[in-house]
Design a protein around this nucleic acid. Structure first.
Length: 584
RNA sequence: GCGCCCCUAGCUCAGCUGGAUAGAGCGUCGGACUUCGAAUCCGCAGGUCGCAGGUUCGAAUCCUGCGGGGCGCGCCA
């Protein structure tokens, strides 16, 4: 928590303790930003609930607390309102001090966690040779933001890209590659290229040629038994996909690297051990030849216990087995204390069963948290799952291309003075940023409607609007020929209400980041940054900076506000994985 | 059938884990550029928070039921 928030809390806590006794030292102060500026800057709502408990009138209680508040230059005004709200407004001086301290602090007063976790986060997780669809993109973008925020507040974060690099689909893929090679028309797997056409071709043959289908099944057996030629082709498929993904991840601007890939095949050698352990511990039951475990509390259509099948009747393993192996690997081998799964909501039941099983069986300790970071679907204008007109998944590459093309057209139209190269660079950042921001800015649990026009608009809660606020500030510094780093925060002197409102918003940056680190809800940071930009623009309109009639004091103060705003916007957007540009 | 999720202004979304008169953007209408980017800002209008109960000082938020929509439920992942 930032210095200012700490000071407010400490003062209030002292007052509560003094007014009500030491047994209330730990009371929840229910301190939060005022809902309405009329009520001041912060409000503490503890008197209402506490009054009830103690059988004292909440208003009376609130008054006692207020009277016990130390006389210090922190509060401009403290009052009791309504049923017992304690409204606090801060002095301009306190706000200015906080702003100056933030400016001087490389950490911008973002608090570090007092209980650092080893976070193992499973996200992105696309499949080999298969198009990454919008769901993968959501997982990738949301996961990336969470990674950045958790690292920012001091957790150790281990990224796990659980690549779909194993399974029966490789039979048809490899068999088809061999056919192509035999026919003198080999598929080039050396370069990082989109293998989706290869997948489609194999799938099409698998579905229509019984003879091919049979060979594909045999090929799965060959792959699993370690046949050298088969394994070599599998390796090439995986390598090519990882290289292609690397290109896409870089374009997307996410932190995932090839080294973060820890796919399904990584657990092959552990699957048998998982089943043996389940057997040895007596958890395994056979059903129609399949080996199952039964998490407590789950029922199927008939009302019977719902199984997780860990080995099929034919001896093959399933994703449940892999997931069990992965939990062990992540908690034991990697030492994870907080396991995150950034996976779509439809898989919720599966994950909860998985968590239930490892809890039931004591496979992870009490100190390990397992958490599904679920998200809703991306919908088209028809409110159905977003697909192409042909009903296929939309390719990430096409999405990125269109985002850049649209951003390019917009930027070109709004600023004709930019060179083509500049437009391209800006369009890349703004287009991708808009795309990602759209995925991040609404509550991840809900479905959201995909809409190019809205995400690229310069109004509303969009990336372009935020970036634009940053750009306007950079323009001021260019024009003023002043370096933001050279400014002295002590020049802060919020006179105009717009200046004060902006400064107040800026001082809440640390709390905003902290809220995301705890809730794993990036849209809260989006909302905060939108508040910052929304507070900046009225300030910008009302408070001239470089005009000759602006007194030196005001000019310096306003430049500091600009510098702080720019830094909060730049870093906040960076935590969301979004790049700013210097002009647009 | 069972389970999970969603329902807030015409549209798209917030609402800080139970607080005061529910807020933005778009769209509609009306204003503001001789000076830092009008790429913006200011204002008007717009609500039975799906419905009905309940919990309590207080409910969009928690509980129960109902309605509507989406998703999941044995050998795919």
């Amino acid at each position: 928590m930032s210095t200012l928030a700490l000071r407010i809390e400490a003062a209030l806590r002292d007052a509560v303790t003094q007014a009500l006794g030491p047994e209330h030292r730990e009371a929840d102060l229910m301190l939060r930003p005022a809902q309405n500026p009329r009520f001041g800057d912060y409000q503490a709502n503890l008197a209402m609930s506490l009054g009830k408990q103690l059988g004292v009138s909440p208003r009376e209680l609130a008054l006692r607390i207020v009277q016990a508040l130390p006389q210090e230059p922190l509060f401009k005004e403290v009052s009791v309102a309504g049923p017992g709200f304690i409204n606090l407004s801060l002095t301009d001086q306190a706000l200015a001090e906080e702003g100056a301290a933030m400016l001087a602090d490389p950490e911008l007063h973002v608090p570090k966690t007092t209980a650092p976790d080893v976070v193992v986060i499973d996200y992105s997780s696309p499949n080999v040779a298969k198009e990454m669809h919008v769901g993968h993109i959501r997982s990738t973008v949301i996961g990336d933001a969470i990674v950045r925020v958790l690292e920012r507040v001091g957790h150790r974060v281990l990224r796990q890209n659980h690549l779909g690099d194993w399974g029966t689909q490789f039979g048809m893929l490899i068999e088809n590659l061999m056919d192509r090679r035999a026919a003198g028309d080999p598929v080039d797997l050396s370069a990082a290229c989109d293998l989706n056409p290869v997948y489609r071709e194999a799938k099409q043959r698998f579905d229509s040629e019984p003879e091919f289908q049979e060979r594909a099944r045999q090929r799965v057996v060959a792959l699993q038994s370690g046949d050298a030629e088969t394994r070599a082709l599998w390796r090439q498929l995986v390598d090519s996909t990882v290289a292609y993904l690397d290109v896409m991840y870089r374009r997307l601007g996410v932190k995932l690297e090839p080294g973060d890939v820890c796919g399904e095949s990584h657990y092959n050698s552990r699957l048998q051990g998982v089943v043996e352990r389940l057997q040895a511990e007596g958890h395994l039951q056979e059903s129609d030849g399949a080996l199952c475990v039964f998490p407590r509390g789950y029922k199927n259509k008939e009302g019977d216990p719902l199984p997780m099948i860990v080995r099929k009747a034919d001896g093959g393993y399933l994703y449940a087995t892999t997931d069990l192996a992965a939990v062990l690997y992540r908690s034991q081998d990697l030492g994870g204390t907080h396991l995150l799964y950034v996976v779509g909501l439809p898989q919720r039941t599966h994950l909860e069963m998985l968590f239930q099983v490892v809890r039931d069986f004591g496979w992870v300790g009490e100190g390990v948290r397992l958490q599904h970071v679920g998200f809703g679907s991306v919908l088209g204008p028809d409110r159905k799952m977003l697909k192409t007109r042909a009903g296929e998944n939309i390719r990430l590459k096409d999405l990125l291309d269109e985002a850049e093309a649209r951003a390019s057209a917009i930027v070109r139209g709004k600023n004709p003075e930019l060179s083509s190269e500049q437009v391209e660079t800006i369009a890349r950042a703004v287009g991708v940023g808009a795309l990602k921001y759209a995925d991040l800015s609404s509550d991840r649990i809900k479905d959201y409607v995909f809409d190019w026009e809205r995400m690229l608009a310069f109004d509303g809660n969009t990336a372009p609007y935020l970036v634009n606020a940053y750009v306007r500030i950079q323009s001021i510094f260019r024009k003023a020929n002043v370096s933001p780093e050279a400014l002295d925060g002590r020049a802060l002197l919020p006179g105009d209400p717009a200046e004060r409102a902006l400064l107040l918003t800026l001082t809440r940056y640390g709390a905003a980041v902290q809220a995301v680190a705890e809730s794993l809800e990036p849209h809260r940071l989006c909302g905060y940054l939108y508040d910052v930009a929304s507070a900046f623009h009225p300030f910008y309109e009302r408070c001239p900076i470089l005009r000759s009639d602006v007194p030196e004091q005001a000019r310096s103060s306003r430049l500091v506000l600009c510098a702080l705003t720019a830094r909060v916007l730049r870093e906040g957007l960076d935590l969301l994985g979004i790049q700013v540009v210097e002009q647009m």
